[in-house]
Design a protein around this nucleic acid. Structure first.
Lengths: 206, 206
DNA sequence: AATTGTGAACCTCTTCACAGCT
DNA sequence: AGCTGTGAAGAGGTTCACAATT
């Protein structure tokens, strides 16, 4: 496949949500311009993004809401359930376990890992907390495909290394630190302070 | 000032963290190449980013760790404490209140807002929960400058509109929905599902 | 000898503009 | 007439490469 940019994928996610809402509204057809207006971008951008994957619209008419939703879901790989593991059961970890958006998008947290033995072997919301020593064993058992890393910054790299050894290829990192991983391993960062600092900069320089 | 890109600012935040760690290590001098290696980018990128704001290094020697840290802090506006409000005290809101990284970077949560009367008027970690009806009053009292929005998607736009009316100019939005705001109002999104969906896409298309 | 600071070259992403389809 | 799909143009961001400095 031709190389698709990260920003295109992020926008597809947004269109997907837009279409979700429009479907709920009962809107049958939608134009690239409508999608664009809702997301504060240009209609050419919407059409270009879609064009990398095929032709989904009808000239003169626009897109069928339900079909386009389905097709973007397919593109993004959301037509399956993803088995997700959560590493670190502190503040953030706990919030993420209860974050419904993940579940509704097909990301199911099947296992939790902790370093603190006192938290291990109990269950929260039906999900067992295992010690990180059992990383590979439990990953295999639940067929984990994506790891959410919600441990303190200084442990994050070691945690990723560990799970890479177990064969995990995709990580969502909440620790405010840069993580290195071998070619082919995907790391996405959710660095909440960076966004705040960006606000700080732009506020300071208005 | 010349237009500075968002990506430059995000990278500066990263360099700032890198320097934090190096300072703690006792490293006195550092080269753009060192910073680059730690963050998996090129040294030219590091130098170019810095060059927008002045000249901070010494040719042949590199940068003084402590000075550069201080200068980036100044650029990002982190030499002051920011008064931050938190809207929505559910899972995410609760986790963010206890997220130490914010505090150590100078972002202090001074007020919490809720829609649920039963949660109001109590205090958590010394921070009072006010009803969102009192948005402007409480914002003024605490001189709030940045709002963290952690409410369900369907309320997010209304919440932002409300606080824009109160004069708030900067928002960090955790709701998975696109927010519109007038010119000059800054909105940063922390959309955790979008990053997961991006992983889903790249995993599906390996 | 080492490393910065930066114009120029390069590459990537976005927008334009219009032919082509409904 | 209206809206898509897309090649071409434009804008913006990254890397190169080297003169300048320590």
């Amino acid at each position: 496949m031709k190389k698709i940019s990260d920003s295109t994928i992020k926008r597809l996610s947004k269109y997907y949500r837009t279409l979700d809402e429009l479907k709920a509204n009962g809107t049958m057809m939608i134009s690239s311009n409508d999608i664009a207006l809702i997301n504060s971008i240009t209609s050419a951008q919407v059409r270009k993004d879609l064009s990398f994957f095929g032709t989904f619209g009808k000239r003169g008419l626009g897109y069928n809401t339900e079909q386009l939703h389905d097709q973007i879901g397919r593109i993004l790989g959301l037509k399956k359930l993803w088995n997700v593991g959560l590493v670190g059961f502190g503040n953030i970890g706990n919030a993420l376990l209860n974050y419904n958006e993940f579940k509704t998008q097909g990301f199911h947290i099947k296992a939790i890992f902790e370093n603190d033995f006192s938290k291990c072997d109990s269950k929260v919301n039906g999900v067992k907390i295992s010690h990180i020593n059992q990383a590979c064993e439990v990953s295999k058992k639940h067929n984990l495909e994506i790891m959410i890393v919600a441990v303190p910054a200084k442990y994050a790299q070691a945690v990723v290394d560990k799970f890479v050894e177990c064969g995990i290829q995709a990580f969502l990192n909440f620790a405010p630190t840069h993580i290195k991983a071998p070619e082919g391993v995907l790391i996405k960062n959710e660095n909440m302070s960076i966004e705040l600092e960006s606000l700080s900069f732009f506020l300071s320089n208005k």
